[in-house]
Design a protein around this nucleic acid. Structure first.
Lengths: 142, 142
DNA sequence: CTCACTGCAAACTATTTGCATCGTA
DNA sequence: TACGATGCAAATAGTTTGCAGTGAG
């Protein structure tokens, strides 16, 4: 989503546009994603040193609410956020926790499942767990 | 995994078999899965009132370590555990959080992804988010 | 000028850890 | 008998909330 579009959408939903929110939006739209609230707070703090971590959490919740961000619960540590609109899957290293995006044919993915009647699917996600190049144990073929 | 097999595997890995661990194993092997540590603690507490929640957490960690349980991080609340060996996917209701198992052809699922070179996959998981029959908003076709 | 938003600190929740005691092997 | 496991309580980590002051619309 474009920044301008995002700012607009934010207002449409009845939120006021504050400098804090603008800074967070600018940071996250340009970001590589997979960031935690803590990491986003650190980045934004560089140019806005007084911003509170709670404000970051609040804004992230709002971004999720308007569909501009998605939460990722891939591992046991902090929640991570994703800001791109395109759906893809994730490769998570079991050792170091590093997350890589993996492109996915959403249509093929969806076609694999036969849902119980009455269930209505909104989105499909796949996660692949394994070893990244740095963490592969010896003996595991490349 | 059979209970006896599991008890054996537990010992093989150098763990002592205590009444607490046995009770947890018996509870989880017979369970419907998707239980949180708290829920498992409550169930086991009925027949062993003094068992500590920390013991449940420790035992769960061990079960994961020996491959007899898997952790699920599907939503924002407590971690849930799965004890069946067969791989399947999950349907998670965005409203009530209810989790349903969905059978998956693991081979087809794996074939959808082209991993970056050097990555080694251990397992593939898919999660479908949507509305369960009880929570489907009006206007959403069944 | 109002009421939503902010920063701060305290509260909360899930999980882990330290330690004295207990009990399996 | 030794040392790993237990229960308890305290510690930790991530996230949320309450509140008085601030500022966007």
């Amino acid at each position: 989503m474009e920044q301008a579009e995002l700012v607009q959408k934010f207002k449409t939903h009845g939120y006021k546009m504050t400098p804090q929110r603008r800074a967070i939006i600018e940071t996250t739209t340009g970001s590589l994603s997979h960031l935690s609230a803590e990491e986003i707070h650190q980045i934004v703090s560089k140019r806005m040193p007084d911003i509170a971590l709670a404000t970051v959490y609040n804004t992230l919740r709002e971004l999720v609410a308007i569909g501009a961000a998605r939460e990722m619960n891939l591992s046991n540590d902090a929640r991570r956020y994703e800001f791109s609109q395109d759906m893809h899957s994730h490769f998570v290293c079991l050792v170091c926790g590093k997350i890589q995006d993996v492109q996915t044919d959403q249509h093929k993915l969806a076609s694999l499942f036969k849902l119980n009647s009455g269930n209505y699917a909104i989105r499909y996600e796949a996660t692949i767990y394994g070893y990244c190049p740095n963490c592969a144990p010896v003996g595991i073929e490349k």
